[in-house]
């Protein structure tokens, strides 16, 4: 039996989970802000930002998150910046999140019936006014459920940052597994930690979805 007690394992894992939570929140908030920019570029009337946003989304959705992190981590040292793993992790996950949220929100904006655009145009609203007063408020309502659902992917995505050396829940688990020779217990607890973070979000997203579908059925 190793001299590391179960309580020590749990205490260390909770410390790792705090970093996972912090990174998830950072990536989700910053990624959401950047995602708004991606959304507006993606639905702009000018084709140039639209194409750029589309390419951005396709690159981030078509390559592994791990590769994105490696490129940021090693690419930044090429331009003379030695960035620490936590910064590379936060930057990588923020970009990843912005691409996905931008695309999810575009779907929500496009789900608004064309008549809403036409009606607001006939009231002589400008494009910005249409967005601000007619389209976005309605799109926001249908965007909440898939956005909460995607936050689960962000939390799970943070596990990959352990590979570039960011010490969050998974990395803490790997180190503890090596130190205690109890990988079954440790990785079981790590999985439980992610489940505790993600399951409430999944369940909440499902509940929101049911609510929207319910009210639409009338």
């Amino acid at each position: 039996m190793s001299d590391i007690e179960l309580s020590d394992i749990v205490r260390n894992l909770l410390g790792g989970a705090a970093w996972t939570l912090g990174l998830s929140l950072t990536a989700f908030v910053l990624g959401g802000l950047a995602g708004l920019a991606v959304l507006f570029a993606r639905i702009a009337r000018n084709p140039l930002p639209r194409r750029l946003a589309q390419a951005y989304i396709e690159v981030f959705q078509g390559t592994p998150l791990l590769m994105q992190l490696f490129i940021i981590f090693f690419g930044s040292s090429l331009i003379g910046l030695e960035i620490p793993p936590w910064l590379a992790a936060a930057l990588g996950l923020t970009l990843f999140t912005s691409a996905y949220l931008g695309e999810i929100w575009r779907g929500c904006v496009e789900a608004i019936p064309k008549g809403q655009w036409e009606a607001s145009a006939s009231l002589a609203m400008s494009h910005v006014e249409q967005m601000r007063h007619v389209i976005l408020p309605q799109a926001l309502r249908i965007a909440i459920a898939p956005t909460v659902g995607f936050s689960v992917q962000v939390v799970k995505g943070t596990a990959v940052t352990s590979i570039i050396g960011f010490v969050e829940l998974t990395k803490t688990g790997s180190m503890l597994a090596n130190a205690t020779f109890q990988p079954f217990l440790v990785f079981g607890l790590v999985a439980l930690g992610y489940f505790a973070l993600c399951y409430p979000l999944s369940a909440y997203s499902r509940m929101l979805e049911r609510k929207i579908h319910g009210s639409r059925a009338h």
Partner: peptide, 23 residues
């Protein structure tokens, strides 16, 4: 479904590769 969809693939992989041998 709930267990798998709410945990990262990397952790599932580690659990299978490092954890299961102790069983």
């Amino acid at each position: 479904v709930e267990l798998i969809r709410n945990t990262p693939f990397l952790v599932q992989l580690f659990f299978i590769f490092f954890g299961l041998p102790s069983l």
